[in-house]
């Protein structure tokens, strides 16, 4: 199913593959790497929040679990980072099952409360278990990612750049496949017409658990990669600031779309970094992003992607998601 949005995505990835040829310094590449990681988190969050309509405020838990899985495995038990990163998919998926078990049966505001509380409690767990996690200080100086003698830090992070891009590519392909599958259609049914879905024999509880687990897989891997790349694990990944930054990417990019959050992640990472360069803007940039988030909710609830689609005149109707239960 090559819709116009998927073609755009493909074009975007081709362009991104050539970025390192243009930007040869480590700093710009670093920004792209961080943006790719955020793009993975944001677009996977969208799977539960946008596609299935689960009021999930605990998505960063999966990322944080990935971060600490990789950090503890590589630092404390000396596991090779190449094994530690995929292991994060498993731990993140397990944490998703634990979160999903109560969420599957809850409704409305209680889903918000439980998912958010799980996120906060995992953070407090990490903070309190200082022997294992380093507590508030976190874990530092994790081993480098290498192939043979080649360290990924060399050549101005070229290796990390392509690895991050490949991860984003895999995650995006995975999301498109899930959204296009019969399961993806049942997600929309659960979101838009729960009773109808139940009547058609779709188990709402099972669908919710599955979608949370699916959205955790690449988010956990992204967490593992993030910590191996930065060589630091800190409890900040569970905090309000990171959470609202990624949430703003989902919202500004456009809920329900795969392309939107990816573009928003790129745009916001660079915008945030540019603002950090302005003196005294270290805190103010978060305020700017928070205000942008409120404005988008107020003025353009469909997000960036809807504005883009309106701007690009095409023969057919804009590819906004259908509201009718599939």
């Amino acid at each position: 199913m090559m819709t116009r949005n998927n073609l755009l995505l493909l074009a975007l990835f081709v362009v991104l593959a050539f970025v390192p040829q243009v930007f040869t310094d480590g700093y710009v590449r670093h920004l792209f790497i961080i943006a790719f990681i955020y793009a993975i988190i944001a677009s996977n969050w969208n799977l539960s929040l946008g596609h299935c309509g689960i009021f999930n405020f605990g998505h960063m838990t999966f990322f944080g679990i990935g971060v600490y899985t990789a950090a503890i495995l590589t630092k404390t038990t000396g596991v090779n980072p190449w094994l530690a990163i995929p292991a994060c998919a498993i731990t993140a998926a397990i944490s998703a099952v634990i979160m999903a078990a109560p969420v599957a049966r809850l409704k409305g505001i209680y889903v918000v409360l439980v998912t958010f509380a799980v996120n906060q409690l995992v953070m407090q767990l990490v903070l309190s278990q200082a022997d294992l996690t380093g507590g508030a200080k976190g874990l530092v100086r994790l081993p480098f990612l290498t192939i043979g003698d080649y360290s990924f830090i060399r050549d101005y992070k070229l290796g990390y750049y392509y690895l991050a891009l490949i991860l984003l590519g895999l995650s995006t392909a995975f999301l498109i496949l899930v959204a296009g599958s019969p399961f993806g259609k049942s997600l929309k049914a659960v979101r838009d017409a729960e009773d109808y879905a139940t009547a058609r024999g779709i188990s709402v509880a099972r669908t919710r658990i599955s979608v949370l687990v699916l959205s955790a897989i690449f988010t956990g891997i992204a967490g593992g990669f993030y910590t191996v790349y930065l060589r630091v694990a800190s409890p900040e990944v569970f905090g309000f600031s990171t959470m609202s930054l990624v949430l703003s990417m989902v919202l500004i990019g456009g809920i329900n779309s795969v392309l939107g959050p990816v573009i928003a992640a790129l745009a916001l990472t660079f915008a945030s970094e540019a603002m950090a360069g302005i003196g005294g803007f270290e805190d103010a940039r978060y305020i700017v992003i928070a205000v942008a988030m409120i404005l988008v909710l107020r003025l353009a609830p469909g997000g960036l992607i809807q504005i883009l689609e309106r701007l690009m005149p095409t023969g057919r109707k804009p590819a906004t998601p259908t509201r009718s239960p599939a």
Partner: peptide, 21 residues
């Protein structure tokens, strides 16, 4: 319900960072 959860979350960031400043 969802939208106001998000906007009040954004307000949290504004207040916390504002207090820091």
């Amino acid at each position: 319900l969802l939208v106001t959860a998000m906007t009040t979350l954004a307000v949290t960031i504004i207040l916390e960072r504002g207090a820091q400043m």
